[in-house]
């Protein structure tokens, strides 16, 4: 069971990293990071359920805090780009900096 859960975590992590590498949409890249955080939380809870008998709450709180911070940063940056009517294509963000 633990091995299958770990395989699922590997698959989710691979999909998240591949999404960051192959996508050029800013929002989609942040959603990929959320997928990686889901994989990490799943790995943590499966590890703690089957291997270690300790409190998992600090690890999960850290992961949830990073996920929340990630989305807050996304919303702030999104509103900044939308106000200046800049495309969310990350390949065009360098032009935005040159303005």
């Amino acid at each position: 069971m633990f091995n299958y859960l770990l395989l699922l975590c590997f698959a989710l992590f691979s999909l998240g990293v591949a999404g960051i590498a192959s996508s050029k949409h800013f929002v989609i890249m942040v959603l990929s990071i959320e997928v990686i955080l889901v994989a990490s939380s799943l790995a943590a809870i499966s590890f703690y359920s089957y291997v270690v008998s300790a409190s998992i709450l600090p690890v999960l709180f850290a992961i949830w805090a990073i996920a929340a911070l990630d989305v807050i940063g996304l919303v702030v940056f999104y509103r900044h780009l939308a106000r200046h009517k800049v495309s969310l294509d990350v390949t065009k963000l360098t032009k935005f900096g040159e303005k």
Partner: peptide, 15 residues
């Protein structure tokens, strides 16, 4: 800002 954002073949290959 909706556009085609992901290269599917690159995505599948890397994954």
């Amino acid at each position: 800002s909706n556009f085609k954002h992901t290269n599917y073949f690159l995505f599948a290959g890397i994954a």
